[in-house]
């Protein structure tokens, strides 16, 4: 910045110059006519700008500001009043959610008490659950066992879990709600459907020869449930389907319960043996059941 520019800048802000700066500027202005003209022009600018009319402030400004502040105060108070209620309701919702979650996981532990008795016939039965479905079942229940929620009556939790869902149906609820029946497939009670669905899925994947795993089925609604295999998937071997259920050692559900000591582990090799016989059906038994009832 040249000396001329520096003086030009000083002229632009002449009002705030210090005494020393003012003296320097005056000295320069005495020697430079151009800067003198410019200084006069800048002074005239400042004077003219100070005549810019100052409009009166609309009276609404203060009223609007104060109204807005009052509104904010009210909003703040409302928030303070709402906070306890909101926090209490949030806590209640949280407790409810936790209890629902805990309750939804609780019945599985309760069903396991029924599992061992029902597992006997299937363990002894030549047919074992389809490997795919068995893996599916065990896979589903691996997560709870990892969390330590599973309390298996005997053997490893995964083993009991693998046979759990199917046997709960076989041992306990089957007499009243046969899973193969059409009315139960869709509209079962709240705790039943999951076990019924798994069981029927296992049955649906099973060929005709594997029926004995449901010994209790013939007691109440035996024919329809046993007839599950006759479903198109089991069509190639119709004669074996009716024969298989009677061959099972236990008839009524009461008989099947106490002799459940043999774990499901023996059934695993059996399942592998029966694997080739399965025609690899994919439709769940719940869907296959209605067609079964029509076959007779």
């Amino acid at each position: 910045m040249s000396a001329h520019d520096r003086f030009q800048e000083m002229m632009a802000r002449r009002r705030e110059l210090s005494a020393d700066e003012k003296q320097k500027l005056e000295t320069h202005l005495g020697a430079c006519s151009d800067c003198t003209v410019r200084a006069e022009a800048y002074a005239a600018q400042s004077a003219a700008l100070r005549t810019i009319p100052q409009e009166p402030v609309p009276g609404a400004l203060r009223a609007r500001v104060l109204a807005a502040t009052r509104e904010r105060q009210v909003q703040g108070r409302r928030r303070l009043h709402l906070f306890p209620a909101l926090s209490a309701s949030a806590a209640a919702l949280l407790v409810a959610a936790i209890s629902v979650f805990a309750w939804s996981h609780r019945p599985q532990g309760g069903n396991q008490a029924v599992i061992p008795p029902a597992s006997t016939p299937r363990a002894t039965s030549p047919a074992a659950p389809h490997p795919v479905s068995r893996h599916h079942v065990s896979g589903r229940h691996h997560t709870p066992t990892k969390k330590g929620k599973a309390t298996s009556p005997g053997g490893t939790p995964s083993q009991s879990r693998a046979s759990g869902p199917s046997f709960t149906v076989a041992g306990g609820p089957v007499p009243t709600h046969p899973p193969g029946l059409p009315q139960n497939s869709g509209t079962a009670d709240s705790s039943f459907p999951t076990a019924a669905a798994v069981t029927s899925a296992l049955l649906g994947h099973r060929p005709a020869g594997s029926q004995p795993r449901h010994p209790a089925a013939p007691a109440v609604n035996g024919p329809p449930q046993i007839a599950g295999p006759p479903h198109p998937t089991a069509a190639p071997r119709p004669p074996s389907a009716p024969v298989a259920p009677p061959s099972t050692p236990s008839g009524p559900p009461t008989g099947s319960a106490p002799t459940a000591t043999p774990p499901a582990t023996p059934g695993t090799p059996m399942a592998a043996a029966s694997l080739p016989a399965t025609p690899t059906p994919t439709a769940p038994a719940t869907i296959a059941a209605p067609s079964v009832t029509t076959t007779p």
């Binding site: 520019d5 030009q8 800048e9 002229m11 632009a12 802000r13 410019r38 022009a41 800048y42 600018q45």
Partner: peptide, 13 residues
């Protein structure tokens, strides 16, 4: 700001 002020005065003029 001093520079801006100086330039603004020039432009105003």
């Amino acid at each position: 700001i001093r520079q801006r002020l100086s330039r603004a005065r020039v432009r105003l003029r």
